[in-house]
């Protein structure tokens, strides 16, 4: 492989990693904080971009389009939350239902399965064509600042009373209810917030790549999990603070896309194989803690650690 071409591909890979990092933060909110595997994100990862592009083409300023995209994500999360809490459908199935429904919604929003947007004709926030510019419109800078803003806001929110009650719901819902927390409400709120983040990421991604596609979110949940896991494995012992944990998710996402670029650049695998590889890696990392508990459990250790 050509090292120069590879080096040239790095800014793009890191930009993508940053953009998907925001989506991975959304996955972190549901999977790690709320303890729910939310499959809505596969649909939301297209919805945000679709809404953004259509709003922009309808003449709205980028900020408004971005806000609309975020709101569309909130609504997708609300749908899953209502399926789960009001209708009593298991969380994972609720997410699948919304994801399926969003496929139709996304087609309706775009009017077709792929909707391009030309960065020359519209005032977009990020575009892959600026990825090597030494200017403020470089996606690395724009998305980097967005990521920092997202982390700061979420850090603040999860420190509030409401944010704490959301964390308590994920940690122990029986305890949360005993302390007067409406766990249905906090669960819906968490799903909304998570999908809002995913839609935000989707809107940025659609601008970056210049189109929204009905299948652009396929497997997003697994990529999100991969980012969460990579971040945790590499930085879990160093990053204890909540803001740093969110940062480690973004770093995990960047590493994922850099490795992705390396693998494709090396011609060992094609981009088509990456979903298979990703799924196997995530499966492996999810299995390791289970195997550890099953085959390497040291008897007696618990008693030593827990002397009253």
């Amino acid at each position: 492989m050509n090292p120069v071409a590879l080096l040239n591909a790095m800014p793009g890979a890191i930009s993508q990693g940053l953009i998907w990092g925001i989506m991975a933060i959304g996955v972190y909110i549901t999977y790690k904080i709320l303890d729910v595997a939310d499959l809505t994100v596969d649909g939301t990862m297209c919805l945000g971009g679709a809404v953004f592009i259509m709003a922009t083409m309808a003449g709205m300023p980028a900020a408004v389009a971005l806000l609309l995209a975020f709101v569309s994500g909130l609504l997708a999360g609300l749908a899953t939350g209502v399926f789960h809490t009001v209708c009593g459908i298991p969380a994972i199935l609720s997410g699948i239902l919304t994801q399926l429904a969003l496929y139709s919604v996304n087609l309706r929003v775009m009017g077709k399965s792929n909707q391009p947007i030309n960065a020359s004709n519209y005032d977009l926030m990020v575009s892959s064509r600026n990825v090597k510019n030494l200017a403020l419109n470089n996606p690395l800078f724009v998305v980097g600042v967005t990521v920092i803003l997202v982390i700061v806001i979420l850090y603040w929110f999860f420190g509030t009373e409401l944010g704490s009650s959301l964390r308590a719901t994920g940690s122990n819902s029986a305890m949360a209810r005993a302390q007067g927390i409406n766990t249905n409400f906090t669960t819906v709120l968490g799903l909304m917030l998570s999908n809002g983040m995913v839609a935000l990421s989707s809107a940025l991604l659609a601008q970056y790549q210049g189109f929204a596609d009905v299948s652009m979110g396929r497997g997003a949940i697994v990529i999100g999990l991969a980012a969460v896991i990579i971040g945790e494995v590499l930085l879990g012992r160093v990053f204890r603070n909540f803001a740093l944990k969110l940062l480690s998710v973004v770093i995990g996402s960047i590493i994922y896309y850099v490795v992705y670029q390396l693998v494709i650049g090396s011609k060992l695998l094609s981009g088509d194989d990456m979903k298979l590889v990703t799924a196997l890696i995530v499966a492996l990392f999810l299995a390791v803690p289970y195997w550890k508990g099953k085959y390497f459990n040291k008897p007696g250790k618990k008693e030593v650690a827990r002397n009253a």
């Binding site: 409401l162 944010g163 308590a168 029986a174 949360a176 007067g180 927390i181």
Partner: peptide, 29 residues
Amino acid sequence: MMGTAASMQIDENLALAARRGKGRGLRAG
């Protein structure tokens, strides 16, 4: 295991309990 949130700090658990029966808004947790 049931009465406390294991992944939260001791002071955070107490703070949750201190707000039992009260509204939970955007004030500091």
